[in-house]
Design a protein around this nucleic acid. Structure first.
Length: 680
DNA sequence: ATTAGGG
DNA sequence: CCCTAAT
């Protein structure tokens, strides 16, 4: 009984980012590429959003402080005497950022706060863009509530936890990695150092870490200013040079060390803190300690070196997740990004650089807040603002398909890892689409304009949501993978596994990121390259101890929690093969073979056209032909999935008609009469 | 093992 | 794709 018992693991969402990397490495399948693109798209969007989120946090703080004075930049100065933790505390913490910042000025405490915030963001980023988004500011309600076990869960918690985190926790978290911020960070640091003690960096409320605006690490290219990390992301996305020439954010620069790496890297380390709160504090602490060293160096003023060191240190980690951020493009959301960025003022967007120039070093981070916009406003609404006829959207988070895995308690960790890997691959390996929800309803008509759909700048788009959804054509849902002794098992052992993910979340650096990455990439490759689907391969009849893994795409919680089918009456678990839609090329080959051989000779068709396609059985071919005939008979509007060229469908009908006729004739068998010659 | 057809 | 009956 015990043995039979299965464990279910729910993953609210994998960070999409990870997947892209794998696919990238693989690059063999167009499919993957598409998925990657889609994901990038989504990520870009997320990244864009991230900036806003930051701003959002910032705003809240500012708004909350009535007493605060805003300087030109909009930077809020708080009473330095703030009740917050004494700087000593911070310094004691020894977190990297803390130490560095604290030294900058006596006021550093506040700065630290900012960093902390930053850290949070970073953490999220590490996990994935999506996570970042999630963590930032208020999580999507739905997501927040839903997340339980999954990474997402952590994200959500993070947000919450942020609020609750003790001041002490922050320092640790912060340590890490500014490196991700890349070189820019150093610049910023310098600036900070320059900042007068009294400069008003105090913004942070220790009590409410969330509100704090992280300063600078983030600085985008010259932004170094205090504008802090908030700007950072936006900048990268939006930043323009003085000439108004779009400036690629540092992300792009420096080998993408910018946002992408930084976030990633940092994320790992920090993330834990954010998410977990005290409980995880210990975990983070470790990270922090490691980081600490770096921080110290920062204090020395040798930010760069520190940065580099850290970078190296974290390199492994960061490498895991950087994919999505890379190649980030401004895309059409530039305006959005701008709005997100601190840069915008009074409805006018300033490029980071401009901001810097204008504000100078003294501008504290987060100061760039838009005067015209109330902090609350920014925070509260997804729709930040409309500029002109445009709608500015802020996507706080994406809903990611949940993944549920069921494995026997007796399953080995290694098998669990493989199972999860397969499940993840099944879900994310395919194309991802973005779903749009308005008022809780999915908007499916892509042809409608936002206005027609009810999305306009007049609205508060709180009800507007986005989801990441698997390609409809491939129902991932029940991908059951049983892993038995697979040949490649050994090799792929270190795949991205829940454990790994977990570690990531916690910021645990024990695991060698590189290893993970490598494994992941390899894994994907093998999975996708090998003709037989991983799942299929793994289906061994003698794998009693093997686990069954089921991935369920997004489903309602209620449903999701229901144990996925328990089937095996027999000792063997028969798993449904994964769905593998026929490509146009395959259809072409099939049609050609059938034209030549006729229907009813599926074995020959198989040998003729699919001899090397192990995953296509003659039954499959027969079924496909059946569906092809059906498809050819229905209207194009009714067809689903990858469109089959009409030309092929026409041939299908002709061939089908011909061979049906032949069959009929043969039955009559008496005299074949002169059949019409059917030439292909 | 194949084929045919319903699910 | 699966399942099954019939070859």
């Amino acid at each position: 009984m015990v043995l039979q018992k299965r464990l279910e693991y729910g993953f609210n969402g994998y960070q999409a980012p990870a997947m892209p990397r794998a696919s990238r490495s693989t690059r063999r399948r167009a499919k993957f590429r598409r998925a990657e693109d889609n994901q990038k798209c989504a990520f870009d969007l997320l990244a864009t959003v991230a900036g806003k989120l930051l701003q959002e946090r910032e705003n809240p703080t500012m708004s909350s402080d009535t007493s605060l004075e805003k300087d030109q930049c909009g930077f809020v100065k708080e009473c330095q005497d703030a009740n917050k933790p004494s700087k000593s505390e911070i310094s004691d913490e020894g977190s990297c950022d803390n130490s560095g910042f604290s030294r900058l000025s006596s006021q550093t405490n506040k700065k630290n706060c900012g960093l902390k915030e930053f850290t949070h963001l970073a953490i999220d980023g590490d996990v994935g863009i999506a996570s970042i988004v999630t963590s930032s500011s208020c999580l999507e309600r739905f997501i927040a509530e839903k997340m339980v076990d999954s990474n997402s869960h952590f994200k959500v918690e993070n947000v919450t936890s942020k609020v609750n985190l003790d001041f002490s926790d922050y320092p640790k978290d912060s340590d890490f990695k500014l490196d991700g911020d890349t070189s820019k960070g150093k610049d910023e640091l310098h600036k900070f150092e320059k900042v007068p003690i009294g400069s008003g960096i105090d913004m942070c409320n220790f009590e409410d870490p969330l509100d704090v605006n992280p300063p600078a690490l983030i600085s985008l290219g010259g932004n170094a200013k205090l504008s802090g990390y908030n700007d950072r992301i936006p900048c990268s996305l939006l930043s323009k040079s003085r000439d108004n020439v779009p400036v690629v954010s540092r992300d792009d620069d420096e080998n993408s060390s910018g946002c992408t790496h930084p976030i990633n890297t940092e994320t790992k380390s920090f993330r834990p803190k954010t998410c977990i709160g005290k409980r995880m504090a210990s975990n983070f602490q470790k990270v922090a300690e490691k980081t600490k060293n770096y921080a110290l160096s920062n204090n020395d003023g040798d930010w760069k070196r520190t940065y580099l060191s850290k970078r190296n240190c974290n390199k492994h980690q960061s490498s895991q997740m950087n994919i999505p951020f890379k190649k980030r493009k401004l895309f059409n959301y530039r305006s959005v990004a701008n709005s997100n960025g601190l840069i915008r003022r009074g409805g006018i967007y300033y490029s980071p650089e401009n901001c810097m120039n204008q504000d100078g070093c003294d501008s504290p981070p987060g100061m760039h807040k838009d005067p015209g916009m109330s902090s609350l406003e920014a925070c509260q609404h997804q729709t930040l603002r409309s500029i002109g006829s445009h709608v500015n959207l802020r996507i706080k988070s994406f809903r990611v398909p949940e993944l549920f895995i069921e494995v026997p308690e007796t399953a080995t960790i290694g098998s669990l890892k493989r199972t999860v890997m397969d499940a993840v691959t099944a879900v994310l390996g395919g194309e991802l689409h973005i779903g749009v929800f308005l008022q809780g309803k999915q908007v499916k008509d892509d042809s409608k304009t936002l206005l027609q759909t009810g999305i306009s700048h007049h609205n508060e788009l709180d009800a507007l949501g986005f989801t990441l959804e698997p390609n409809s054509s491939q129902s991932l849902p029940i991908v059951c993978a049983s892993h038995s002794p697979r040949p490649k098992a050994d090799i792929t052992e270190p795949v991205i596994s829940p454990a790994v993910i977990h570690q990531r979340i916690q910021g645990n650096s024990d695991m060698l990121p590189e290893h993970q990455v490598t494994s992941l990439g390899r894994h994907f490759e093998s999975d996708h390259d090998s003709a037989p689907s991983p799942v299929n391969v793994s289906v061994d009849k003698n794998m009693k101890d093997s686990k069954e893994l089921v991935t369920v795409p997004e489903m309602d919680e209620e449903l999701a929690m229901v144990p996925v089918h328990q089937k095996p009456k027999r000792s063997e678990i028969v798993q449904r093969r994964i769905r593998r839609p026929f490509s146009v090329d395959e259809v072409e080959a099939l049609v050609q073979a059938v034209e030549k051989l006729g229907t009813g000779r599926w074995r020959d068709v198989k040998l003729c056209a699919f001899d090397n396609a192990n995953h296509r059985t003659y039954v499959d071919l027969k079924d496909k032909w059946k569906t092809l005939v059906h498809t050819a008979r229905i209207s194009p509007q009714q067809r689903r999935g990858e469109p089959v060229p009409q030309e092929l469908l026409d041939r299908v009908l002709v061939a089908h008609a011909y061979w049906s006729q032949q069959q009929t004739k043969s039955q009559h068998k008496h005299h074949p009469e002169t059949e019409t010659v059917f030439s292909f």
